[in-house]
């Protein structure tokens, strides 16, 4: 089967059950594509075997850049480009430069890190996300398993999911077109076909 097109979706309701299920399913040798949850579940990323987030390192590097830029600007303008004696202080009055250096550090660190996060997670206003189940932002924990990426067949994986106490298991297929849906197509579909699925209606 082709990769990234045919999925089995398992729906869970309880976060502790999901954690056990993830361990069980991975133990059975099934590769999990991704789990979609309405709220962060601590420890889920470890259970899924993800590497630690590199956001702290990104923030540090951006902060370092921001702080250096601010201090360089202050030093260059006050001590080199147009030196003036202000209140009898030395041109390079370091203690006075601390507040702006600090603000520069925080500003660039925050914007840089959030920018990195948005790019890393491919989040932007014109994105038409490929969703497995709309209840994943409401109250259900949705696990997707890529059939094209597993050696076990559909029925075997279904059995593993049932065994892990999945409340619902169903198959979901995407076409090539779905996988690279453009915002324009999303817009056209939305206004010609209307809203076709909603977690409010699914109840």
């Amino acid at each position: 089967m082709e990769k990234n097109k045919h999925f089995l979706v398992g729906i869970f309701e309880d976060q502790d059950e999901l954690m056990h299920a993830v361990e069980h399913i991975r133990h059975e040798g099934v590769k999990i594509h991704e789990v979609y949850t309405p709220y962060p579940i601590h420890g889920l990323e470890h259970a899924l075997g993800y590497k630690r987030s590199y956001m702290p390192r990104a923030a540090f590097l951006f902060g370092l850049t921001g702080g250096s830029l601010a201090l360089t600007l202050e030093t260059w303008t006050m001590a080199f480009n147009w030196p003036m004696i202000i209140g009898g202080k030395s041109h390079w009055a370091f203690p006075d430069f601390v507040p702006v250096t600090f603000e520069g550090t925080v500003l660039i660190a925050a914007f840089g890190m959030v920018g990195t996060f948005l790019v890393e997670s491919a989040l932007h206003p014109l994105k038409a996300p490929r969703l497995f189940d709309r209840r994943a932002t409401d109250d259900k924990l949705v696990m997707a398993i890529d059939l094209g990426n597993n050696s076990l067949n559909e029925d075997q994986i279904k059995a593993v999911l049932k065994d892990a106490h999945a409340k619902e298991v169903y198959r979901k297929d995407f076409t090539d077109e779905d996988n690279k849906e453009s915002f324009v197509k999303y817009l056209v579909d939305l206004f010609t076909k209307g809203v076709t699925s909603s977690s409010r209606k699914l109840g």
Binding site: V35, I41, L48, Y50, L123, H124, P129, A136
Partner: peptide, 10 residues
């Protein structure tokens, strides 16, 4: 921003 609630994003 096209949020999907993926564990990695969280």
């Amino acid at each position: 921003f096209g949020w999907d609630g993926a564990a990695k994003t969280w």
